[in-house]
């Protein structure tokens, strides 16, 4: 790849310095990526639909693909097998002692579902699905989560951003700065802070340390 002539680079540098807090490069390293190279790697999708490929797929098509390529881990209806992620259900559980965070109960954006399936699924062969297959599987996941109820529903690039997820409004920006930090930045007590301290919980009773313990509820994944 040929470099810009030196004069043009200099001009670009001056231009950048005027309009941007970020200075232009000064090391003249690397090369320009070609449009084909960018297209090969730039597969990410955003909530506003940026990055969605052309394509479409129905709930019924998605059900077939899901049964073949996804159900071994996630179950036929997204209920999850063993400790593999549960994808459906859990609505109304988020305040309970056993919240079930699924696409329907928790995920705020449908674009996340499409993007993740497209880049990381199926687990043993990532990035192998065609766009139409990803649309179809995503449509099926909306169906098993009761976000759409019609088996003939077709998801496409055109109608994608019109789908709203049930839990979208229940996320908020980190607010530790206002809700926690003032309480934490107080000089700590050094003496007689807690007379009569008692042990309230013991790991030995729960007994889940590896090699010896039983399996508790829940999973990190």
């Amino acid at each position: 790849m040929s470099r810009f002539p030196k004069a043009a680079l200099l001009a670009a540098g001056i231009h950048m310095a005027l309009i941007s807090p970020v200075l232009a490069g000064q090391f003249n390293l690397g090369r320009e990526a070609t449009p084909e190279e960018v297209a090969a790697w730039d597969i990410d999708v955003r909530p506003d639909g940026q990055g969605l490929p052309e394509g479409r797929g129905t709930v019924a098509q998605g059900e077939e693909i899901f049964a073949e390529k996804c159900a071994a881990c996630h179950g036929d209806f997204g209920e999850g097998v063993d400790r593999w992620p549960v994808l459906a259900g859990g609505q109304g559980s988020l305040k309970s002692d056993n919240p079930v965070k699924t696409i329907g109960s928790y995920w705020p954006y449908l674009s996340t579902v499409f993007d993740y399936i497209n880049r990381a699924m199926p687990f043993t062969e990532a990035k192998s699905l065609e766009p139409d297959e990803v649309y179809a599987i995503t449509a099926y996941l909306l169906y098993v989560n009761d976000v759409v109820t019609d088996e003939d529903f077709e998801l496409s690039k055109e109608n994608f951003v019109s789908v709203k997820m049930p839990n979208t409004d229940n996320f908020y920006m980190d607010d530790r700065e206002t809700t926690e930090l003032a309480d934490r930045r107080k000089a700590p007590c050094m003496e007689n802070c807690k007379p009569g301290v008692k042990v309230t919980k013991r790991a030995a009773i729960i007994d889940v340390t590896p090699d010896e313990g039983a399996e508790p509820k829940g999973s990190l994944e």
Partner: peptide, 15 residues
């Protein structure tokens, strides 16, 4: 979104 967000007791989540 689905991970590395902090679910609070009221069912809402910090991101």
């Amino acid at each position: 979104t689905s991970k590395y967000t902090d679910l609070m007791a009221n069912g809402k989540a910090r991101r």
